[in-house]
Amino acid sequence: MEAVPGAQAVSRALRVLRAVARTRSAGINLAQLVRDTSLNKPTVHRLVLALIAEGMVEQDPQSLRYFVGRECYVLGSIANERFGLGREAADAVARLARSSGDSAFFSIRSDVFAVCVLREDGDFPLKTHVLQPGTRHPLGVGAGSLAMLAAMDDAEVERCLLINDQQLKTAYSNFSVPMLRKEVALTRERGYSVNEGRVVRGSWGVAAAVRSPSGDVVGALSIAAVESRLQRDRQQEMGRQLQEEARHLEKHLAGAAAMRPEQKLKRIVRN
Score class of each variant (00 low, 15 high):
212 S>M: 06
209 A>Y: 03
206 V>Q: 04
7 A>W: 10
150 A>Y: 02
258 A>M: 05
213 P>H: 04
97 A>M: 03
99 S>K: 05
230 L>F: 10
47 L>T: 04
192 Y>L: 08
176 S>M: 11
172 Y>C: 06
174 N>S: 15
204 W>H: 13
266 K>L: 09
220 A>V: 05
258 A>Q: 13
9 A>I: 09
113 F>L: 05
43 T>F: 05
47 L>Q: 11
82 R>P: 00
241 Q>A: 08
222 S>K: 01
180 L>T: 06
88 E>N: 05
200 V>E: 15
85 L>W: 01
3 A>Q: 13
43 T>S: 15
60 D>Q: 13
139 L>T: 02
70 R>C: 05
102 D>P: 00
127 K>S: 07
68 V>E: 01
45 H>P: 00
233 D>N: 11
213 P>A: 08
161 L>N: 03
192 Y>D: 04
113 F>H: 02
161 L>F: 09
236 Q>H: 12
164 N>Q: 15
118 L>I: 08
149 L>F: 08
53 A>P: 07
147 A>V: 07
209 A>G: 09
170 T>Y: 12
17 L>C: 07
237 E>N: 08
17 L>S: 04
205 G>F: 03
1 M>A: 14
257 A>G: 06
243 Q>F: 03
55 G>E: 05
40 N>T: 11
3 A>D: 09
241 Q>L: 14
201 R>V: 13
227 E>P: 03
163 I>E: 12
90 A>L: 06
32 Q>H: 10
190 R>T: 07
258 A>C: 05
202 G>R: 09
158 E>W: 10
113 F>K: 01
222 S>W: 02
7 A>F: 11
169 K>M: 14
84 G>C: 04
176 S>W: 08
85 L>C: 03
169 K>Y: 09
59 Q>S: 10
68 V>R: 00
215 G>N: 10
48 V>Q: 03
205 G>H: 04
28 I>A: 06
50 A>F: 06
51 L>Q: 04
98 R>I: 02
45 H>F: 07
211 R>M: 07
221 L>S: 03
60 D>N: 15
124 F>R: 12
212 S>L: 09
153 D>H: 15
69 G>K: 06
205 G>I: 04
